[in-house]
Design a binder for these strands. Structure first.
Length: 151
DNA sequence: GCCAACGTTGGC
DNA sequence: GCCAACGTTGGC
């Protein structure tokens, strides 16, 4: 099983929102590398839910991928902030996933705390200038983060 | 195909 | 609000 990290601005959609809903559609990804990672996910794989562009950026908890990848309907919706004018029903390059709530950490694992973990020396999230909103997490990174979150 | 301009992301 | 990083766009 691969594991992942997905970023969201909590003002838009937070882990608390996902917990309340139980499941939600993860959509609006408009970067090809991030989209390719979305497509590479298998059903039931787990991901870290990362809060970005907020007062306390960091990993808030864990979610799970539900079912298969599908075309992102927000790309076709002129009313959506994620509307992609070049996309059509016949040719929609953008991908969405259904996701489920799994776990909220007792407190957000902030970027400064993540930087303290030796296992995360090469973690993509912590690299300067990183803007990718969907990225893979290695098993060693996953284990270290979960241990820090619960410890 | 190059590359400057521009827009977006996201931490601080 | 600032600014570094980086993806995208569009002229040539």
């Amino acid at each position: 099983m691969a594991c992942w990290l997905l970023k969201s601005e909590p003002d838009e959609f937070s882990l608390t929102d996902l917990e309340r809903l139980g499941q939600a559609r993860w959509d609006g990804v408009r970067n090809y590398q991030a989209r390719n990672f979305l497509r590479a996910m298998a059903s039931d794989e787990l991901f870290f839910f990362h809060h970005s562009s907020c007062a306390e950026p960091g990993i808030a908890g864990i979610g799970r991928i539900v079912g298969a990848a599908f075309a992102d309907p927000t790309a076709l919706d002129p009313e959506s902030p994620y509307h992609a004018p070049k996309a059509s029903a016949e040719d929609n390059p953008w991908t969405a996933r259904q996701v489920a709530f799994v776990e909220a950490f007792p407190r957000v694992l902030t970027l400064p705390r993540l930087r303290q973990l030796p296992a995360l020396a090469d973690f993509a999230l912590l690299r300067k200038g990183n803007r990718l909103s969907v990225m893979p997490v290695s098993p060693a990174e996953w284990t270290a983060i979960v241990a820090a979150a619960r410890g």
